[in-house]
Amino acid sequence: MSFFELIQWLEQTRIAVLVREDLWLFPILVSIHILGLTLSVGTLLWFDLRLLGFGIRHCSVSGLYRRVMPWMLASFFVMVVSGSMLFAGFATSAYDNVYFRIKAVALVVAGLNALIYHLVTQQRIAPWDQARVLPIPARVAGLVSIISWTVVILAGRMIAYTLYGIDS
């Protein structure tokens, strides 16, 4: 089964049909997705700023992480669930949409960046946990995170304006 056949199948599932045909489910999902995104990325931004040496510089990196991450992860979960349902409803149209592809790439970059930070950079946090100016790998992680999530937001919103071929 090719990837396109897979998303064709996805678009025919019961939940996908419900997303397309139910009068209220689509607007409710879009609202939940946007609210989840503002909460998730909005709180993550403060952690990224700390990595870059801005914002709440008096707080240790690990301390800020512990406080911000529950909000970020909970809203991220909400965003992923609602986003997956929205994608299922319009999977083949989204597959052809350039902004969806940009968003998908930016999501992968954001995910890999977080993975590298947790598996590599954060493992040597002790010497710089309290420092105001952090080592380059930590600053790069903050910068890549801000850029990739900004692209996710910008491209994600553009999908709504281009999904049905606004040129036609």
Partner: peptide, 16 residues
């Protein structure tokens, strides 16, 4: 679309 995207960025900054 561009205006709406940047609008959402502003909102994200406020909520966070």
């Amino acid at each position: 679309g561009v205006l709406s995207s940047v609008h959402l960025l502003g909102l994200t900054l406020i909520v966070g």
